[in-house]
Design a protein around this nucleic acid. Sequence first.
RNA 1: GCCCGGGUGGCGAAAUGGUAGACGCAUGGGACUUAAAAUCCCCUGACCGUAAGGUCGUGCCGGUUCGAGUCCGGCCCCGGGCACCA
Length: 867
Amino acid sequence: MATQCKEYNFLEIEPHWQSFWEENHTARAEQTSSKPKYYVLDMFPYPSGAGLHIGHPEGYTATDIIARYKRAKGFNVLHPIGWDAFGLPAEQHAVKTGTHPASNTQNNIVNFKRQIKALGFSYDWDREIDTTDPKYFRWTQWIFLQLFKRGLAYVDERPVWWCPELRTVLANEEVTDGKSEVGGFPVERRNLRQWVLRITAYAERLLADLKAVDWPDSTKRMQEAWIGRSEGAEILFKLEREALGPLKIFTTRPDTLFGCTYMVLAPEHPLVNALTTSEQKAAIEDYRKKSAGKSDLERTDLAKDKSGVCSGAFAINPINGARVPIWVADYVLMGYGTGAIMAVPAHDERDYEFAVKYALPVIQVIEPTDHSANCAGTSKLPYVGDGNLVHSDGYTGLPWADTKSKITADLAARGVASATINYKLRDWLFSRQRYWGEPFPIVWVNAADYARAAAARPGDVPSAPVTYTSEGVTHYALPLPPTALPLELPSVETYLPSGNGESPLANVTPWLELWFDVETGAAVPASESRPVGHAWVRARRETNTMPQWAGSCWYYLRFTDPTNAATFASPEALKYWGVPDLYVGGAEHAVLHLLYARFWHKVLFDLGVVPQVEPFTKLFHQGIILGEDGEKMSKSRGNVVSPDTIIASHGTDTLRLYLMFLGPLEAMKPWSMQQIEGVHRFLHKIWRECLTIDGEMSPKISTDAAFADAPELTKLLHETIKKVGDDIEGMRFNTAISSMMIFANALQKAPRASRATVLTFLQLLAPFAPHFAEELWARLGGGDAKSSIQATPWPAFDPAKLAVTEVKLVFQVNGKHRGDQLVPTGLPQADAVALAQANPKVAPHLEGKSVVRIIYVPGKILNLVVA
RNA sequence: GCCCGGGUGGCGAAAUGGUAGACGCAUGGGACUUAAAAUCCCCUGACCGUAAGGUCGUGCCGGUUCGAGUCCGGCCCCGGGCACCA
């Protein structure tokens, strides 16, 4: 049932159809169906207090067009939305106001939902999920337990940002230029006990499986670079004082071993103290202190200016017995390789710079093969190009690439080297000292209690216990039984951090200090008397919570079966829906979210609970929409465009069309208030072609079955069907809209048009401007009062109608356009040449010249090369 | 520094190696109107020319090709990512 409005009153039409869709569940995905499935997913939003930004509807409109198109193509479409609702802003708000972050989060969700619904997206709201809902995060915790028992989670002392003024730990994104984002207080590195996930165990697969996914190349490259695989060798250098044991270094260039003139240890290297000579002790100690005080930022910022101190110790080069000095310098990082390198200044820019600064010797061991590239015959150092070895006894003359493995093998035979692969990827710091996150389903117990528990529940614990030692006591991490999940957050009196680096949960003694039943996971506060039963032990809960990434690591799986209380998603749902066929979201998640989710997915695959190796087979990044001034939209610049404003002034159908018409989806493009009028007029124009000013069907639309459209209009309709379909499949929404504009212009010029043609056109428009299309469809009698344009199958084009009998052939002379003419398709070359020679515009250019070559592309071009 | 992406009218943009600028915006002119809005029609890359027409033109310089926005080499500028990873 349509509205009664006479003019195009989007303020009436849009809410009307939104309630129609809601009442009729037009977007509901059937949990079981004989139809083929199509799963199209948006990166779900963090419901911030600021509400929806214009960038959200950009990607969401694209996926909505695809969802509606695929439904019309006969697919059972899963198009869900939810809330990535744990996060820092809610916690900061809670600290400020004292209200529970959950209530603020729920308010924001209500607002987001209102805004998203006003945009008319065909989400299946029955599948809405919220990562802060215990029914959801129960399974986030469950997945953590799976990681835990497979030995993929451990605890470690890790440096984190600590702000003494705020008495809290800050996340990386809360720190800029060594100051806290809030208040601008200085921050420092502090070692705190953290949970870490062993993502590095999956480095090789995360890298290799990138080949199998349909992702933007740039995103794949970013992940490749992030994983940072490099092949090389670990080589043992004896120390001059052999008692200290060998020094292990990592290098990718074993072939340059003869060029090693000094060694460098990272300041944190465990051998530094032992090998430093007494004369150098003070200098080294001083240097270590200085570099420890440097933040990571400073250490990289000062990259240009290398510094270091000589340790006074020497190592012996295993290839030639050379005695090389050992330096300590912070350009070598403890976190990569072995934290120690052999320096080959002749063939490494960093080593060269350092050697020049401290006047260390430089020995060239690679010589370019291509001497012409080095005019004087001497190569400029440092030289990192291709070449053959020199000054390398037993290897001189060999190409460097071959020597790499040869030297490694030769040293390996002597037991002093091994071929090694290193990754830049680090294990994932998975804990936050926060309240508003998923609590870890872990309690800490003593050794004896752990042993008993592990014996009772052997399937739940890792082969090696996870422990940490504090003040001489070793604590054992005991997981809650899966049946005891979810572990919910206790209510707290204050959201202020505890002040000692622990989360606010550390202050909730009744929740924290427990009598714990190791078999059932039941708990009572330790202040009460020990319950009766042999399984009760003293325990302290883990006070860290999980980072925001956790909930978003697996939400795409939950959408396939969002209310399942027995498992995170049933095997049937996972088999039918599988993983998203298309995943759309911002490129800012190119590395972290997408890498973390891939990691979890692979773990679940290894567990045998998901059937696919990769979670996101096809990925697309929408571009950023800039403000009208061409700058990034921001409150401070005052160039922010709110969807609410545009919906009120132009309607969501216009907004959706405009967002798609702006340019290619992936491009960065500026918003323009002037240009939006163009698509708004386009809709008005169609409205006027369909309806009279009284809102009745226009007399130019013929309902007479005997009426036939002009052949040109029919042909254009079929061209438009093809173009719009192809462009939606290729995500070229801007050109799809252009072609619909061309059709609308033709429709306007046609004196009459059949209703069938107009209805077909409305079907093409429906995914883009769904409310508008529904309204006109209903008014033109496209179906009965209860039908929806969305329920009709996508129009098919008739290839016969696309056939052309005449084409414009372009005549060129020496590659220059000189004329053109309509010719029948399939015109033989001789006829084409004759036509060209006879063409009054072409003929003068041929006069007095002879044709030496003819290039004929039938239906396109005839190029006469003359001399 | 390294790795990506991109530079096309006044603007957003379009173009399987085959008429550069589709579609839209803006500007100008016209129609309708008492007038305005809305709508419709026409022009609109630059230069020369009354016109017909011609010359030039896709960041810059070269190359391949009958023909280059598109392919190749070098450079400049803008945007993004990484950044002492041995």
